[in-house]
């Protein structure tokens, strides 16, 4: 295999890996927002997922248990968010921001004793024979199990929202909670479920960072990825396929930028650092510039509190 082909494979594999945590978090937020709830606490939930997954892995020795615990922990903190915003009707924006700050602090506190603990992270699947096929092997079969899970979850979310009755009800709740309530759907219960799904997915995104991407726990290790996931949902105009595209685009341009630098091309490092943000926003805005479709996709009741008796 020529070095050029190897470089391209390295870039593609790294792109998929860099995009995966964004895919998890953004898909979760997409479902939450489709139900009409805006949760700005992704970053905090990711950190709690990351630390919970890490600690569970240290204690049980099993990264699979770590992944499960990360999802549980993410769900748990999202329930707190749900209780505040759905039951107590607090402001969703303020509560979400508070959740992020809370998550940063709590994860740092809980994880204090685990900084620098070595763990065996989730290894890539070693598929015999198929994994050794040149080019195709590393691209298709060489990833970690969570990457395949992210694709499965993408398909499930896309199918659920577009093709199932339950998905239709969820979208109806996000469009007009009064109408959904009048027809007799349990608006608050449905929103709770959507918020919990978002929490579990953020937890999973966190676990990907602390168990696969860089198998270690350090404070604030998400480094802003929760916010990028949040932006992806909006710029992808609430469509799963575009979220996926945006996540890989962002990851890909970051990786290509690193390769351009390492290859010694004359390019400004500052420009390259900016490029992923710029290009991702530009592409998503361009492919979604049809304003009628944006209005159709944007959940009309997003961020609005609902009380059945009001």
């Amino acid at each position: 295999m020529s070095p050029e082909v190897e470089t391209v494979i390295a870039i593609l594999v790294a792109t998929l890996r860099a995009g995966t945590p964004l895919v998890f978090a953004a898909l979760g937020e997409l479902v939450t927002e489709k139900s009409g709830v805006l949760n700005l606490g992704i970053e905090g939930m990711m950190l709690i997922g990351a630390v919970a997954g890490f600690i569970a892995t240290v204690l049980t020795g099993s990264p699979v248990a770590g992944v499960v615990f990360a999802m549980l922990a993410g769900t748990l903190v999202s329930l707190l968010f749900g209780f505040l915003t759905l039951t107590l009707l607090t402001n969703q924006v303020a509560t979400g921001l508070a959740l992020t700050i809370f998550g940063i602090g709590l994860s740092a506190f809980v994880g204090l004793g685990y900084i620098g603990t070595p763990i065996q992270g989730l290894p890539p699947l070693a598929v015999p024979l198929l994994g050794e096929i040149p080019v195709l092997g590393p691209l298709v079969f060489g990833h970690d199990p969570l990457f395949y899970l992210s694709l499965a979850l993408f398909a499930a979310v896309a199918w659920f929202l577009a093709r199932t009755r339950a998905g239709l009800v969820l979208r109806a709740v996000g469009e007009s909670h009064e109408a959904a309530h009048a027809i007799g759907y349990p608006v608050i219960a449905i929103r709770y479920l959507a918020v919990m799904f978002g929490g579990a997915m953020s937890g999973l995104a966190g676990a990907y960072l602390s168990l696969v991407y860089t198998p270690q726990w350090t404070e604030n290790m998400t480094a802003g990825r929760g916010w990028i996931a949040l932006a992806l949902v909006v710029f992808a105009t609430w469509r799963p396929a575009r979220v996926l595209l945006g996540a890989y685009l962002f990851g890909g341009i970051t990786i290509v930028g690193l390769h351009i630098q390492a290859a010694g091309f004359e390019a400004s490092a500052h420009l390259l650092a900016m490029l992923p943000y710029l290009a991702t926003i530009l592409v998503l805005v361009l492919i979604s510039r049809d304003t009628t479709r944006i209005r159709l996709n944007a959940p009309a009741a997003l961020g609005k509190p609902f009380h059945p008796d009001a």
Binding site: T214, N220, H259, A273
Partner: peptide
């Protein structure tokens, strides 16, 4: 040299090293 434009981002530092 690869510049990662951050003092601290484990994910990006790892990708830079792998690159």
């Amino acid at each position: 040299v690869v510049w990662v434009s951050s003092w601290y981002d484990p994910g990006k530092e790892r990708e830079a090293a792998e690159t």
